Amino acid sequence: MDHAKLQATAMAIGGIYATAQREQALWFIMDAYKKELKRQVRKVLTEHGVAEAKAIRDAVEEFAVHAYAGKH
């Protein structure tokens, strides 16, 4: 994957979690909301041709929970 495509993927995923934080600040403790975010992230990864979308999606969620939950 080239740098531009990787950067576009990261920005799209960042946008998903930034929107979640704006709309529902405690999204990281809401299982249904997290499940929807994971679905959105997997879709972005798949659309951008990222291999191992499920594993990466799970790692992204782990990072996002750590990054955003630490603010509360």
Rank of each mutant, 00 (worst) to 15 (best):
I13Q: 01
R39K: 14
H72G: 11
K54Q: 14
W27F: 12
A32L: 10
A67F: 13
K43N: 06
A67T: 14
A64N: 11
G14N: 15
Y17C: 08
I16S: 06
G70H: 04
F63L: 11
V50L: 00
M1W: 00
I29P: 00
H72N: 06
G49V: 00
H48F: 00
Y68A: 13
A4G: 02
M30S: 14
A20D: 13
I56M: 08
Q21E: 10
D58G: 07
I16Q: 07
E47Y: 10
Q40S: 07
A69W: 08
K34E: 12
A32R: 07
A10H: 09
V50M: 03
K38L: 15
T46D: 10
F63V: 13
A53S: 09
I16E: 12
F63P: 08
A12N: 11
A64I: 08
A18C: 03
M1A: 03
Q24R: 14
M11H: 15
A53V: 02
R57L: 02
A8D: 03
V65F: 06
V41P: 04
L26K: 12
K5V: 03
G15V: 04
Q40C: 04
A8V: 02
H3L: 07
V60C: 09
E23D: 09
A67I: 13
V50D: 00
G14H: 11
K43Y: 07
I29Y: 13
K35L: 13
W27N: 05
E23I: 08
A51C: 05
D31G: 10
A64T: 07
A64R: 06
